[in-house]
């Protein structure tokens, strides 16, 4: 059966992703836009993610060892170069919410020995916890370092009774030795897609949001379906002249501020960031 499958679908098996219009006929391709000018660095998204996705609180000692488990982290930079140019950060801090970029050509995917991480039909970079053997190759190969490994057996001690009652039953509690990462709140997407499918329709724009996008007080995070050309996210991508299947964008318009981080590594991320703005006259 597998051989006939191989022969029948040879063309599609040899197709290299991403390619132009690959999601043209697909119902969903999840993507995000994060407006860095709106992001105020308030950490609401971070805590929301802890609440939604059963992230373990690791405590001071382990945080200090670099074993924190935040799927989305707010990075705060003081400058773009290698030194702060002025004595004071005159233009404020530079906040960057960094989460899994759900790359179309994710460097983490091909290196996993067991295929615990792979690309889902709706364009997500998945992580199947129970398949993971913990080689940590994906994390080694992730240029954004947004994969988090369970160095300890958190189910044992991160949720002393009754804290465990808060755990989201739709999300697995990861035990020691597996890699975990942002899933774009896959449990919400799945529930929404199931509902929509039963109703015989596609998800409407904004019907399902990730926890971070839902919480964000400034609405800096826009989440949606890129395959739907009319969704807000798709229009924003187009408006910002970012094309999913390109690793160098042609920016013909002035003042377009969308970009993808470390695009030159050919990762084709699904998150577009909008440049931070500053009134330099002030």
């Amino acid at each position: 059966m597998s051989l006939s499958n191989l022969i029948q679908n040879w063309d599609s098996f040899r197709k290299r992703r991403p390619y132009e219009d690959q999601y043209k006929d697909a119902p969903y391709k999840w993507a995000m836009v994060i407006d860095l000018d709106s992001c105020i660095g308030c950490n609401a998204c971070t805590v929301a993610c802890y609440a939604e996705n059963n992230l373990a609180v690791v405590g001071k000692e382990r945080f200090g060892k670099g074993q924190a488990m935040h799927w989305i982290r707010i990075e705060r930079y003081w400058g773009e170069g290698e030194a702060l140019e002025t004595e004071f950060p005159e233009r404020g801090a530079q906040y960057l919410p960094m989460l899994c970029q759900q790359c179309e050509a994710a460097p983490c995917e091909p290196v996993c020995p067991v295929g615990a991480t792979h690309h889902s039909p709706d364009g997500l970079n998945t992580q199947v916890y129970n398949r993971c053997v913990g080689s940590r190759y994906c994390s080694a190969n992730c240029p954004y370092k947004v994969r988090y490994f369970n160095w300890w057996n958190y189910p044992e001690r991160a949720w002393p009774n009754p804290l465990e009652l808060q755990l989201n039953p739709d999300v697995t509690v990861r035990s020691k030795g597996v890699m975990e990462k942002c899933t774009f709140c896959m449990q919400r997407l799945r529930a929404g897609q199931d509902k929509a499918k039963t109703a015989g329709r596609l998800l409407a724009d904004g019907e399902v949001l990730t926890a971070c996008a839902q919480a964000c007080p400034t609405s800096a995070i826009t989440f949606g379906n890129l395959a739907d050309k009319n969704s807000k996210v798709a229009r924003m991508w187009k408006n910002q002249q970012v094309d999913l299947a390109k690793n160098a964008q042609d920016k013909s318009e002035e003042g377009v501020r969308g970009y993808r981080i470390l695009e030159d590594l050919n990762t084709y991320p699904s998150i577009v960031y909008l440049e931070r703005l500053r009134n330099f006259a002030a």
Binding site: S2, L6, R16, R17, P18, E109, P110, G115, V128
Partner: peptide, 22 residues
């Protein structure tokens, strides 16, 4: 080779990461 390619082709999850499935 045939086994590997057909395993890749009929693998339930097909890892991509920018590469073809086979």
């Amino acid at each position: 080779l045939v086994l590997i390619a057909s395993a890749q082709a009929s693998f339930i999850y097909q890892t991509r990461g920018g590469r073809p499935i086979v």
